[in-house]
């Protein structure tokens, strides 16, 4: 009886250890090259997460995308206060703010940036500026999408120096 109890315990331990090594939660930082987007010349940036080695190592074993945040520095280059926005689409050919607003999904909206001022978005603050999180999660799960830099009011000109911070659970 005692022997079977020990075997049972050992089996449970193995099951728990197997569960332990089966998955883990990772944080990926995907840096986006600095760009300036304006109302007359909107800028789109292609995000291919397979460029990130950590993502690439786990892309076939992703269990869930747990959180996505946009961190970095935003600079309002115009003479009026404005709010920077990041829009997401799987199409990278939109050429006007109206076209982006009609077809893409807003995923980030900053607080007001004073005219000519710079705003730094910290990781902890960034979570509260995310919009349509599920769309962003789905895009991160897919691994390839486009981000457009806009602002709430026109005319605008904003320098985006941002990174995506992606928290995901994946098989190890």
């Amino acid at each position: 009886m005692k022997k079977y109890m020990i075997y049972g315990m050992a089996l449970l331990v193995l099951i728990f250890i197997a569960g332990c090594v089966a998955s883990g939660t990772l944080i990926l930082v995907y840096d986006i090259d600095s760009f300036i987007s304006s109302s007359t010349s909107i800028q789109v940036t292609e995000v291919d997460l397979t460029d990130n080695s950590d993502y690439n190592d786990h892309k076939d074993k992703i269990k869930s995308i747990d959180q996505v945040a946009v961190v970095g520095t935003l600079e309002n280059l115009e003479f009026a206060d404005n709010q920077a926005e990041v829009w997401l689409s799987d199409v990278g050919t939109y050429s006007s703010p109206a076209e982006v607003r009609a077809n893409a999904t807003i995923v980030f909206s900053s607080p007001v940036i004073l005219a000519g001022d710079t705003l730094f978005i910290d990781w902890s603050d960034a979570l509260s500026y995310i919009q349509n999180l599920q769309t962003l999660k789905d895009a991160a799960d897919n691994g390839h999408f486009y981000l457009y830099g806009l602002a709430e009011n026109s005319p605008f000109s904003v320098r985006f120096q941002i990174s995506l911070v992606i928290t995901m659970t994946a098989g190890l």
Partner: peptide, 14 residues
């Protein structure tokens, strides 16, 4: 204690 909390998506928190 070793704790496993399934997340419902095939992963778990440990």
């Amino acid at each position: 204690k070793f704790e496993i909390v399934p997340t419902g998506s095939g992963g778990s928190r440990k």
